[in-house]
């Protein structure tokens, strides 16, 4: 996640737990923060018709998604008192059990961070042009609904 465009939320493949740990550590110097709220989306090994999901392959209309994410971000900052906000979403293959979405809100008092995280996750799911293809253990697939 170094040398990234700060407006880019996309990460190729899974989001690693060690990177999440480093991101938390990177906030220790921001001592105005009194609470962080973190949401981690994990790929679930759903079972359907005798088949198990082994991975989800994510694709996106990246330019439109980043533009929309910028609007979501502006709206959230005007509604809640946040110190900072970081969002990462996977593209490409993410195996079941791995992390595909990381939303990290920080505020002076906890409620702003908690409410902002909930609202951002809802907005990401409803309005970002991202698609998931569920790949089964036998390599057949279906598009995630």
């Amino acid at each position: 996640m170094t040398h990234r465009n700060p407006n880019n939320i996309f990460i190729q493949g899974a989001i690693s737990p060690s990177q999440i740990g480093k991101d938390i550590a990177a906030h220790q110097g921001k001592t105005r923060i009194g609470g962080h709220s973190i949401f981690l989306g994990q790929v679930r090994a759903d079972e359907m018709q005798g088949q198990t999901v082994r991975a989800i392959e994510y694709t996106a209309y990246e330019a439109m998604a980043l533009d929309k994410m910028h609007q979501i971000r502006e709206a959230i900052f005007s509604k809640y008192s946040l110190v900072c906000l970081h969002v990462y979403h996977s593209l490409g293959i993410v195996a079941s059990g791995e992390i595909c979405l990381f939303v990290f809100s920080s505020s002076v008092h906890r409620k702003d961070a908690i409410m902002a995280t909930e609202e951002i996750v809802n907005n990401i799911k409803s309005s970002l042009p991202i698609w998931g293809k569920e790949i089964f253990t036998n390599d057949e697939y279906q598009w995630k609904k």
Binding site: G41, Y58, A60, Y61, A63, M64, D67, H89, C100, L101, V121, I124, K125, S126, S127, L128, P129, I130, W131, G132, W143, K144, K145
Partner: peptide, 28 residues
């Protein structure tokens, strides 16, 4: 979407516009 903007009503197009066909989103 036309040039990255969702279009919910009829919109006039210009030559060279980029359209996108967007099925229901399923990110996250």
């Amino acid at each position: 979407a036309v040039n990255q903007e969702l279009v919910l009503k009829k919109k006039i197009l210009k030559p060279g516009d980029t359209l996108a066909l967007l099925p229901p989103f399923s990110g996250g």
